[in-house]
């Protein structure tokens, strides 16, 4: 007698927990061959707002950690992901229909990217900060600080895509709400399980699944969101609308652009969501 699979219920990842959508909605996710894989939670406006609230609540603690500590947490995510490579390879193969070799390439790249960003935690301030030689008797220096809560629309590529947009945002101390790739949301939730077991405080990363066109406008117009990464928005009209909505509280916006995920990522994935703070003090005895 064959054993019946125990299938996973895919929910959202908000504030370190895995709730269903408050709307009670879900949508069908098929595999690459068009067969039913699972029902994913279809997040609502309320879920988006709950996620922002969780991200805001986590901001003070996460941005207040030492850079060394944040680096270790990111490295820990890489470690846990490394241990679950087989699971992610299987998910990628099923959902995207890629070859085993291709799936392995992406999983390995995701792990390596997390390691890469983990190392950035305590270096980005040294690379983007400055001692400023002002023309007067003053100590003056500039250093980066996280922008706050960043809403992210993840690109295709359910694992590497998500890691590539989330890691640079959080490594500098931001917290985020990320909308997973609409056609391939399941891997994002599995990655949420990795993050939930990697010493990452709840609320630092919040993952929503569902319709980008439905959820993203609420995040773009939310006044407690400070930044917006539109990487995964493929419809130019929607991207423009979201940028317009983001202008109401002058969110820092990263526009969509062509980017090969396997290439080394540009530095502005981090710097776009950093503020520069300059501190002055007189010199004297």
């Amino acid at each position: 007698m064959t054993r019946l699979d125990v299938k996973k219920t895919y929910k959202l990842y908000i504030g370190g927990e895995f709730p269903r959508s408050e709307s009670g909605r879900s949508y069908v996710v098929n595999d690459a061959k068009g067969r039913f894989m699972a029902n994913a939670a279809q997040a609502s406006r309320k879920d988006a707002r709950d996620a922002v609230k969780a991200a805001r609540a986590a901001f003070a603690g996460w941005s207040g950690k030492t850079a060394y500590n944040r680096g270790q947490v990111l490295y820990r995510i890489a470690e846990v992901l490394e241990g679950r490579r087989d699971q992610f390879e299987a998910e990628l193969r099923a959902s995207e229909g890629v070859t085993a070799a291709r799936a392995r390439t992406y999983v390995d790249a995701a792990v390596d990217r997390l390691v890469w960003y983990a190392g950035w935690a305590d270096k980005i301030a040294q690379v983007t900060g400055n001692a400023n030689p002002v023309a007067g008797p003053y100590f003056n220096h500039s250093a980066p600080e996280p922008t706050g809560v960043v809403a992210v629309v993840a690109p295709k590529g359910p694992l590497l895509g998500l890691v590539s947009v989330v890691a640079p945002v959080i490594v500098t101390g931001n917290t985020c709400v990320v909308i997973a790739s609409e056609p391939h949301p399941l891997t994002a939730i599995t990655l949420g399980e990795v993050m939930a077991t990697s010493d990452l405080p709840g609320g630092v990363v919040n993952v929503l699944t569902g319709s980008v066109a439905e959820i993203a406008p609420w995040l773009a117009s939310h006044l407690d969101v400070n930044g917006l990464d539109l990487t995964g928005v493929t419809d130019p009209a929607l991207a423009t609308d979201l940028e317009i909505a983001a202008a109401d509280n002058l969110k820092r916006v990263r526009r969509p652009g062509v980017e090969e995920l396997l290439d080394p990522p540009p530095l502005d994935r981090m710097t776009r969501f950093l503020e520069t703070k300059t501190v002055w003090h007189p010199l004297g005895i």
């Binding site: 400023n132 002002v134 003056n140 922008t147 400070n226 002058l250 503020e275 703070k277 501190v279 002055w280």
Partner: peptide, 22 residues
């Protein structure tokens, strides 16, 4: 974006200036 401690309204071409939030 700029914090003046024990001074205020100092400006210099070498010193970055600009804001957070709105």
């Amino acid at each position: 974006g700029v914090v003046w401690s024990n001074t205020f309204n100092r400006f210099d071409p070498a010193s970055p200036f600009g804001g957070y939030k709105e």
